[in-house]
């Protein structure tokens, strides 16, 4: 219920902004990924986080394709997980291979 309210609030806010300023705010979330067809998106979130870091290592964080991975994992992952994983990456104890 609370989640739904939050979404609804964001939706109203975006529309208001668009009506007022005519700004081009585009609302989007992670697209459907055939590798993760089920409701549980944990590994989708994980895969995009790992892909972002692999991408950044190769092309740099600011590269457009890396930004895509970041957008997807930011949409999918709970913030706590991302914070935790970022700490682990920094400490060199992240369990994924980057």
């Amino acid at each position: 219920m609370r989640l739904w309210l939050a979404h609804y609030w964001l939706y109203i806010k975006a529309h208001k902004e668009m009506e007022e300023g005519g700004s081009q705010l585009v609302l989007q979330t992670a697209p459907f990924d055939a590798r993760f067809p089920y409701t549980n998106q944990t590994k989708n979130c994980w895969q995009n986080f790992v892909d972002f870091h692999r991408c950044s290592k190769k092309l740099g964080e600011e590269h457009e394709s890396c930004k895509y991975f970041k957008r997807v994992y930011t949409s999918l992952c709970p913030k706590g997980w991302v914070d935790n994983w970022n700490d682990q990456v920094e400490a060199g104890t992240f369990p994924g291979r980057i």
Binding site: T42, C45, W46, P95, G96, R97
Partner: peptide, 11 residues
């Protein structure tokens, strides 16, 4: 994911 999505787990 806590294990690194690999078996045996990372480490």
């Amino acid at each position: 994911v806590e294990l690194g999505v690999v078996w045996p787990p990372q480490g």
